[in-house]
Design a binder for these strands. Structure first.
Lengths: 349, 349
DNA sequence: CCCGAGCCTGACAACGTTGTCCAGGCTCTA
DNA sequence: TAGAGCCTGGACAACGTTGTCAGGCTCGGG
């Protein structure tokens, strides 16, 4: 009896009628279920003629293997999760793309989500990905406590943290040399004669922001320059806050002659402020930004390689899955100072 | 007999030992399987005391529901797929983020992949997403024939095409007014006295590129200006090709006095070329670019709202899933001319 | 004291696929 | 011509979850 009406308890939401299954294909081709499975998976042991009949039935019915069932059976999903702060941030685009390319090379799909810099949302996302049984996770953490991941790690979910370290668990980490990069950037300003140098960065609870501030402090200390509290401003990176911070440093009795900005968003806002400003103020920014070379003056930056961060992390992830990787490690990628003019302006008192 | 060694044919790759299941939780809590299910899903009909015992067992074992099995049973995955050209392109970041936000509001996860402007890769990705049984698809098409999607549409996979229309199938489409935007941008140059205006765009097989070229031609025709072949250049948007095209238009016996660029990547490269150029050349670009206002002169652009494209598409997708949407439709979002200086330069002959 | 209503709870099948295992038919050789 | 061995194909169970359904319990009313 072909074409029997199966399906007993379908959801009402399912429209059109549901998808054909291997059973349907088998019935139509007049073969057994397992034979269809063999054809679909390219396994050996099927006559050319039988294979043709099966292919024909697949074509005719529009059959597509149901990966949920497959995953349930096999245990691996061939997909990895990526949790980052904001997909729309130009820094994360290339990183995300790099992760995707590595995943693709390993035959895996990428599922991603934005945490919006919210620890709860990060956890929610990560656990949702685990419930889908992703094979691995690349996480740019928003929170600083990742003990909630312990059962997942034990269960064998490969995990790599990028851009910022994991909190309170032992895991692979790939970061840029935030401390060293900031230190070199500030030293560059000092080398060009600046002493009153401002620092505007992200919220101090964010690891990268703290590290870059540490780099700033070290460079200043190394040069024997005492730092005034009014020279440092940490907080959210929305344009309003940053603008106020920059204007504060540039006015008053003891204005800065140079500013070091803690990330791409801050840099962009500060460039705007400086453009409206009469006095020439030197600027070095963390993170490269597009068109930085075409501004007047060109913007000197400490560039990190977002694509390399993503690639390195993803490659480690798949090595964890291979089993070729045993101990968690911390990898630090170097930054690169790109001089374009803004950092070489002399102090204008 | 508790702690019996289950698992017969596990993959060798699975490390540590596999995850606990509802069965394990049930055994530990001393309740039935279904009771665990009820607790996990917050269904009514469980005593506070029983619930407490189950929660305790879940906690102790680090249980996490397996969504593959759930999907297999329920038919819906609560995830949607997004296929775009390149995650690293600044235009797609906000679009992607907007889709994600709408998905999140509907409790769905986002799976995405880059087609790299390759029709085969697009198809491969889309079908992989369908095999995972995503509830819906948002596609920025690379190819121009989407008949391969017909079985999926019939099976009820909600689908919306964004930025470019679908090929050879009837589906929802959300696009910008590429034709009108380009026409207005070029008319703006004409209004400022230009007659010899160049057009540099993407490959003509890409729908947006063709539409923008059509807008250019219309504006020129409306002004009664005959267009020389040497004023138009279509092709890949890599910097080398664009640079040659721009330099070609700017030299020779009859150089252009203004250039209209067909997308953000082209615009950036042309800005670089013009910066090296002695003569002032007017420029209007399609797509807004960051820092465009800070260049000298500021870059006049025809801006499209990438986030609105993504949001609109995703909202339509979920309305399809609700069943509140019946007929496929084509939605066109307006563009906006933002004048900043480069488009208002007079012709310098 | 008995019976029915109502509430909890658990046994069971089904979702679609893949791994295991066996049967039947074939070829090849002695 | 018989037996061994190979190749093809199919029956069946299992993956982990959820919907159905029925059983057992308590409680209140007659």
């Amino acid at each position: 009896m072909p074409e029997t009406p199966r399906r007993t308890d379908r959801l009402p939401g399912t429209r059109y009628g549901s998808r054909p299954t291997m059973k349907d294909v088998a019935a139509r081709a007049g073969v057994g279920l397992k034979t269809v499975s063999r054809v679909v998976n390219g396994e050996p042991g099927v006559t050319a003629e039988t294979e043709r009949r099966v292919q024909e039935a697949i074509e005719a019915l529009g059959f597509r293997r149901n990966d949920s069932a497959r995953v349930l059976r096999k245990g691996r999903t061939a997909s990895i999760g990526l949790v980052l702060e904001d997909l729309a941030d130009p820094f994360y685009g290339p990183l995300s793309r790099a992760v995707e390319e590595v995943a693709r090379a390993h035959g895996a799909l990428l599922i991603n989500g934005s945490s919006a810099e919210d620890a709860d949302r990060e956890q929610e996302l990560v656990l949702a990905l685990c419930a889908r049984r992703v094979d691995g996770l690349v996480v740019i953490p928003a929170g600083d406590d990742h003990r909630y991941l312990e059962p997942e790690l034990k269960a064998g979910v490969a995990t790599v943290f990028v851009d910022r370290p994991a909190g309170k668990i032992d895991a692979d980490v790939v970061v840029s040399d935030n401390y060293g990069g900031a230190r070199d950037g500030v030293a560059h300003l000092i080398a060009h004669g600046h002493r009153r140098i401002g620092f505007i960065g992200d919220m101090p609870r964010i690891h990268t922001a703290a590290e870059r501030l540490r780099g700033y402090r070290t460079a200043m200390a190394d040069a024997g320059i005492p730092v005034a509290d009014s020279w440092m401003s940490l907080g959210v990176t929305d344009p309003e806050r940053v603008r106020r911070a920059a204007e504060g440093m540039l006015s008053g009795p003891d204005p800065v002659t140079a500013i070091f900005t803690g990330n791409n968003r801050v840099t962009v806002t500060v460039i705007r402020v400086l453009a409206e400003h009469a006095r020439r103020v030197a600027l070095v920014g963390f993170d490269d930004i597009e068109l930085a070379d075409l501004l007047q003056p060109g913007v000197t930056v400490v560039a990190q390689d977002a694509a390399a961060l993503g690639r390195t992390a993803a490659e480690r992830l798949f090595r964890q899955l291979d089993g070729t990787l045993l101990r968690p490690e911390r990898i630090e990628l170097p930054t690169r100072l790109i001089t374009r003019g803004s950092g070489e302006l002399p102090p204008a008192d």
